[in-house]
Nucleic acid binder design. Structure first.
Length: 421
DNA sequence: TCTGGGGTCCTAGGACCC
DNA sequence: TCTGGGGTCCTAGGACCC
């Protein structure tokens, strides 16, 4: 059977989430900032028209945005994650086997669909908008790469009304698609391809296999085949467990005291361990790193070390013990740090942990049940309802989020009030 | 003054084995 | 003293994605 995929992509997702609860933002320039309010990571169309790029630092554009009546928000991931869940649940009502590709994108299998694909797409689009308030664009094609290309057209060309099926004349679209805009072709490869006269999707599609494989490896070859309509990248309905888990943050200000670093590392370890437990994994190895302020010193300096655990674990107190021992090793008095992070690697399923003959492990039934209880409470009542004293109370090193919107969907006190007269 | 966070996959090359 | 072919595993670095 002919394969067919739809890519559903939320338009300017973070901005759209803010607009759902602050309708006055509709039609106005809006940006959402990265952690610490440093750079711009989401833009409304009005902002894109000003030539502001993703990743641009806020200070460069702040005056311009203010001058044209724009609005600036800190990122509110709690809100975006909750809105994403709502969108995905809506999509799952159309096709149970969706692949949640990122916070704002999902692939849907369309093989065997009887009705007109665009009509079906428009129904999905209408439903998502009605149920969640989020506008989406939908691209349809015989491969995931072509569906991605179709979604670009759906988003840019207003004649499509948000839905485009590339199946009929893919060449016409690919001829107008810059090679750098193809899914899987990043900045480096695009630059390389252009040096060799390969500028569009159509050019790439027609290049000889051996040349592509030699220069772009097997992943590049897969992309070329996908452009030819041969599906090489399957739908992944069940998300595979992560092979590594990281929690790292830039500080709201420079940090040089050991005590504050200890609070940060304890917090990040707790968060990473929680993620590991959620996917039922235990970590064999824990890494801790500190990064000096790269903007102050001419070179970027990081300090890092890791330890191998005697028995893989997801027990927060045990992992914290190792993390803090590493911190003591890598900490250098007198230096200022911008960022710290904790990474768990060598993740194994918790049911298959290899025991150690000479080390009983600290994760007994009592410990397991304590972690489970803490996780349950924090899921039910919100993150950090129960936390570790070592994480600190004030957290003066925490990130800056000066323009944070309310927890509209996840906190009773913040639920919007509607007044009817 | 001010520049995010979190992942995956592939390849080349070295070490080592028979 | 020098010599062949075939294989695995690990790591670092590079590329990609959102």
């Amino acid at each position: 059977m002919e394969k067919r995929f739809a890519l559903v992509d939320c338009n300017n997702f973070y901005v759209s989430c803010e607009r759902v609860f602050t309708p006055g933002l509709e039609g106005k320039p809006v940006v959402v900032l990265s952690n610490n309010d440093g750079c711009i990571i989401a833009r409304s169309n009005e902002i894109k028209q000003l030539g502001i790029k993703i990743g641009d630092p806020l200070f460069r554009w702040k005056a311009t945005i203010k001058k044209c009546g724009g609005h600036i928000y800190s990122s509110n991931y709690t809100l975006y994650a909750d809105m994403s869940r709502r969108v995905m649940e809506t999509l799952a009502s159309f096709a149970p086997d969706i692949e949640i590709y990122s916070i704002d994108e999902a692939f849907l299998p369309l093989s065997g669909l009887r009705e007109d694909s665009c009509k079906y797409g428009r129904r999905i689009r209408h439903t998502v908008k009605k149920w969640t308030g989020i506008p989406v664009s939908i691209g349809i094609g015989p491969t995931k790469t072509l569906a991605k290309a179709a979604a670009r057209v759906a988003k840019k060309d207003s004649a499509c009304a948000g839905v485009f099926d590339i199946s009929h004349h893919p060449e016409d679209i690919l001829a107008g698609l810059d090679v750098s805009e193809i899914w899987g072709i990043g900045y480096r490869h695009a630059r390389f391809l252009k040096r060799h006269g390969i500028r569009t999707g159509l050019d790439l599609k027609e290049i000889e296999d051996s040349w592509i494989k030699k220069h772009l490896t097997i992943t590049g070859l897969r992309t070329a085949w996908e452009l030819r309509g041969i599906s090489c990248i399957p739908l992944e309905e069940v998300s595979a467990p992560k092979k590594s888990i990281m929690c790292s943050r830039s500080f709201g200000r420079e940090v040089n005291s050991f005590d504050e670093l200890r609070q940060a590392v304890t917090s990040y370890t707790a968060r990473a361990a929680e993620k590991a437990r959620r996917q039922r994994s235990a970590a064999s190895c824990i890494h801790v790193f500190l990064i000096e302020n790269p903007f102050v010193h001419s070179h970027f300096t990081s300090h890092a070390a890791c330890v191998q655990l005697p028995v893989p674990s997801a027990h927060t107190p045990e992992l914290t013990g190792y993390a803090l021992a590493i911190l003591e090793r890598i900490f250098k008095p007198g230096l200022s740090f911008r960022k710290a992070g904790v990474m768990l690697t060598g993740l194994v399923p918790r049911g298959q942990v290899q025991m150690n003959l000479f080390y009983p492990g600290r994760e007994g039934l009592r410990e397991l049940s304590l972690m489970k209880t803490i996780d349950t409470i924090n899921t039910r009542w919100g993150r950090d309802t129960i936390t570790y004293a070592g994480c600190g109370i004030e957290r003066p090193w925490g990130m800056r989020r000066a323009r944070l919107s309310a927890r509209f969907t996840t906190c009773w006190n913040d639920i919007p009030v509607v007044k009817a007269s």
